[in-house]
Amino acid sequence: MVNLEVKTSVNSYPIYVDENIRHQTKHFLPKKYSVIHIVTDKRVADLYLDDLKESLEGHPHVFHSIIEEGEKSKCVADFEYLHTRSIQFGLDRESLVIALGGGVVGDLAGFVAATYMRGIDYIQVPTTILAHDSSVGGKVAINHALGKNLIGSFYPPEAVIYDVQTLQTLPAKEVRSGYAEIVKEALIADKGLFDNIMQTKLSQVTNDTLKDHIFRGIKIKTHFVQADEKEKGIRAHLNFGHTLGHALEAKYGYGELAHGEAVAIGMLFAMEVSNTIYSKNLPVELLYKWLKDNGFPLLIKEINIDSLFNQMKLDKKVVNNQIQLVLLKDIGNPVTLELSDEDLQNYLETFINKMTKI
């Protein structure tokens, strides 16, 4: 088993990474809890809810709630629904929420835990590759109709229990989405990891390779989280590719483009802007070819550039109405740069015109 520890201002929590550890969940609980509320989605419930409940056998009060799959569940209605269920189940301040699922479940259940009775414990049990990123760091949130993750908090879990065996049931779209975040981490911090991934075919990835890539991605995420817990400085570098990515998600409607698929396009954009500003030769074509070879949807449908730009202006990293774009001076050397509206619109128009004709 691979273990890591994340140290925050309010707690330190372990990350466990191994195969089949969901069956031993009760052994990873940091203390006894009065009531346990498992939150999951329909697809994951069919696959792994019984395993998790059996692993908690003997606890007198274990309940569960099942939400719909997908980004649309990160909404006020489901947030209120889970609070109502928690009240009905009798959760108190000594209770626990377990988020069993991908990033949507983790973000939503974590935000419920952060706000229920002003905050109770929660544990992340990720079941997607993408959730290797979202489950670590304590950022929990729901979406607003005008933007992604605009309602949320920083609220770290008590543990992350990452059973990589659950990743074997992921559809190809989710594998792509998760790997985009590992590529992001590699580009901002680890050229060796980036080079290794560029030689990996996702349809043939082995469990050992997957564990290695995930662990290295989590280590990178942990480094940035511990250095900048509340995203006041370098933690913002983890948003590489996300400014355009989030805007594309919102404009197309959450769910049409998976989060990582949108971020992949955002990374291509950020790398091209980086090459222009810093006169670099970042491997945009190499990344583009790898994305295309692994089935990422890269053709941007006709989209109103002014509308897309306005959506980017809703990004959480906007300061004084100016977009702070995460760029690369080189692989492993990210920077945050404030761009004028005129420059950004020009870069965006050039990029979108290119991506609508590929």
Results as ranks from 00 to 15, higher is better:
D92W: 00
E54H: 14
G70E: 12
H83Y: 04
K72H: 10
I66M: 08
V76F: 11
K72E: 13
F79R: 01
E80W: 00
H59Y: 14
P60Q: 10
E94D: 10
A99T: 11
L56S: 09
A77S: 12
E69G: 09
F79V: 05
I98D: 05
L56Q: 12
A99Y: 02
I67N: 08
L96W: 05
S73L: 10
F63G: 15
L96F: 07
E69S: 09
S86F: 02
F79L: 01
L96M: 07
I87R: 05
V76G: 00
D78V: 04
H83I: 08
S55P: 09
A77C: 01
L91H: 00
P60G: 13
H61N: 15
D92F: 00
F79K: 01
H64Y: 15
E54C: 10
A99N: 06
V62N: 13
D92A: 03
S86Q: 05
S65E: 15
S86M: 07
R85Q: 11
K53C: 14
Y81D: 10
E68A: 13
Y81M: 13
C75T: 04
T84M: 08
E94I: 06
L100V: 03
L100W: 00
S65F: 11
F63S: 15
I66L: 14
G70D: 14
E54G: 11
H83Q: 05
L96Y: 07
E94G: 03
E80D: 06
R93F: 08
G90Y: 02
L52M: 12
G58K: 10
